[in-house]
């Protein structure tokens, strides 16, 4: 801090500093309210008795707290929750590891044509999944991987490759070549460099990639319903079944919507610290 900054424009700022600060907090609270408003509806409706559940009375607090919604959906959701954990954990780990390898090669251990290969990988992010459903289900059946979670994991890993590759490529592009060159000079091969130089500094990128992959595989319905048999259905199928019957028990839908997002929230909390650092360090910067 020099005296010049203290006497110059800063003084003008200080006159406005308080109102600005108040305005800032007001705006932040307005945003927070907007983001929490649907959660309010989720929570109060989940706690209502079916007789009180109605669109026109959505803002009203429940007259009597009823945990029936939760009690009724829990047995329906539990197997799905277990399956979704068994699905989302391996998916986020495997696709991050593969994405790290791809991203490292495409940014720091390039081969001729790497600039063409990367866009080709990236384009995979954009295919509409409904469009490739039939050939995919056929292929998976021919591979004998339909019905179980393994096939679903494979598919999520494959379609997650473009984005995880993008995340790690951008992240590694941000680290200086000198580190890599130093390792090369020491005679380290590619795998050694990846394992001992690149990966150790990559936890933030892992956080970004894993959060992304965990979220998308956790919330996927389409692949889950097409590729797994009943005993392996992810939680979204159970959620859909509660929400999509001929009669929709709205208090149950809201309760299961809340229950189904808890594990993802847990992941956010656990990885949250790394997540911001990962974004800052350049993952996903294009």
């Amino acid at each position: 801090m020099t005296t010049r900054t203290a006497t110059g424009p800063v003084r003008i700022e200080s006159r406005w500093a308080r109102p600005l600060q108040v305005g800032r907090y007001l705006l932040l609270f307005a945003f927070a309210c907007f983001f929490l408003m649907p959660v309010y509806v989720l929570v109060v409706t989940a706690l209502k008795d079916p007789v009180q559940v109605s669109v026109s009375r959505m803002w009203e607090l429940p007259q009597s707290l009823s945990l029936n919604g939760f009690r009724e959906v829990w047995p329906k959701l539990r197997p799905g929750l277990v399956n979704s954990v068994l699905l989302a954990v391996p998916v986020s780990i495997i696709s991050s590891v593969l994405g790290a390898a791809n991203g490292f090669v495409l940014s720091k251990w390039r081969f001729p044509g790497a600039d063409i290969v990367f866009p080709l990988i990236l384009f995979g992010m954009f295919i509409p999944y409904q469009a490739i459903l039939i050939p995919m289900v056929r292929t998976m059946r021919d591979l004998g991987m339909q019905g179980g979670l393994d096939g679903l994991i494979l598919v999520h890993v494959i379609y997650g490759l473009p984005i995880t590759t993008l995340i790690f490529r951008s992240y590694f592009a941000g680290i200086s070549d000198e580190l890599i060159d130093a390792a090369k000079v020491d005679g380290a091969g590619m795998l050694r460099t990846l394992a001992y130089v690149a990966l150790p500094i990559a936890p933030p990128a892992f956080a970004v990639a894993m959060i992304w992959q965990f979220t998308s595989s956790w919330n996927d319905f389409l692949f889950g319903v097409m590729l797994t048999s009943k005993e392996n259905w992810p939680v979204t199928v159970a959620l859909n079944n509660i929400a999509g019957g001929q009669q929709v028990p709205f208090h149950e839908v809201m309760a299961s919507g809340l229950l189904a997002c808890l594990p993802t929230l847990l992941v956010y909390v656990v990885l949250g610290r790394f997540f911001m650092r990962g974004l800052m360090a350049g993952a996903l910067k294009g």
């Binding site: 859909n240 929400a243 993802t264």
Partner: peptide, 18 residues
Amino acid sequence: RSVFIFPMAISFIAIAIV
């Protein structure tokens, strides 16, 4: 930050109903 990010965790099926 958490309040702003968490909606991503909710499945579109539940989002749509609310």
